[in-house]
């Protein structure tokens, strides 16, 4: 029972890392970016290639995967996304679905359609017994990294000047510009960090989630649920939503395998009926 809970927490943590960037770009910047999963996939494949082909240590590959996805995000933001911030949601949906399709086809073409596995170092394959619960080192690492990321994100957004500038830029870009805030730089950096975190999540979670070219499509609904259910008031909302989702998904698949896949949709519908604006605060509307 506790093992399931533990696995669920680890799974939820990965979802959080994957989706937290989207919580900011979609929740705060009101950009419907359905291609968020493509950055996660990019990070995952980058890590797989580095570890499996070039022999980069797994722990070193994680920050590199972050950097790779962040850089990709930065380039695409400057080249493409910057043009669609002010567009209607329909345009953003079409645009980002287009990117997803291209990413899926490109990865399929260059890497093949089979599932990728990242070779974990031996010490991550260890298992411990803590208070009778079987705990894998790999999942412990995931939980540790994700907790650190969540905490620092919350601190950065709440207490730093960057955080307050981002909030100002989101609230009213024109006023923010008038105050001398470089809005497009802030958006670009935010987008890049969000994409980088997705990349980190993709690398870290490849083992749990499964990495293949359809990754961005498979997890699109998960990301949307995290953002919608969590609301956009705080990082904390997305964090709790990720945990609920992760635990529901793992527990559902474990206890009622025949209908386990529906657990997350049950959560989604339940929350929508109970709290249409998300569990934690209001969803940004246009």
């Amino acid at each position: 029972m506790l093992t399931v809970l533990f696995d669920g927490i680890a799974y939820g943590m990965v979802l959080f890392i994957l989706a937290c960037g989207l919580a900011v770009t979609l929740g705060l910047m009101n950009l419907v970016n359905l291609a968020h999963g493509a950055f996660a996939m990019a990070g995952g494949y980058a890590a797989a290639i580095m570890v499996n082909r070039w022999g980069v240590p797994f722990l070193a590959a994680l920050p590199l995967a972050f950097l790779f996805a962040a850089l990709l995000g930065l380039v695409l933001e400057r080249l493409l996304y910057a043009h669609v911030y002010a567009r209607p949601h329909l345009d953003q949906v079409l645009f980002s679905i287009g990117l997803v399709f291209m990413a899926v086809a490109l990865v399929d073409y260059t890497q093949g359609s089979q599932q990728q596995f990242i070779q974990l170092p031996a010490f991550l394959r260890l298992r411990f017994q803590i208070a009778g619960v079987s705990v894998g080192a790999y999942r412990l690492l995931i939980i540790a990294v994700c907790a650190a990321v969540a905490l620092s994100l919350q601190l950065i957004l709440s207490y730093t000047r960057f955080g307050s500038r981002l909030r100002a830029a989101v609230d009213d870009p024109r006023v923010a510009r008038g105050l001398g805030i470089n809005v497009s730089l802030i958006f670009a950096v935010t987008f890049a960090v969000g994409s980088g975190l997705a990349g980190l999540g993709g690398a870290l979670g490849a083992e749990i989630l499964g990495l293949d070219p359809t990754f961005p499509l498979k997890f699109m609904i998960y990301f949307l649920i995290v953002v919608t259910v969590g609301g956009t008031a705080s990082i904390g909302g997305a964090f709790l939503a990720s945990l609920v989702l992760g635990i529901a998904d793992v527990a559902g698949k474990y206890y009622i395998p025949a209908f386990g896949a529906f657990a997350i949709y049950a959560v989604m519908i339940g929350v929508l009926i109970w709290r249409p604006q998300g569990l934690f605060g209001r969803v940004a509307t246009r």
Partner: peptide, 10 residues
């Protein structure tokens, strides 16, 4: 219920 975003999700 809700916004464009909720509709996409649902």
């Amino acid at each position: 219920r809700g916004s464009d975003l909720t509709r996409l999700m649902v």
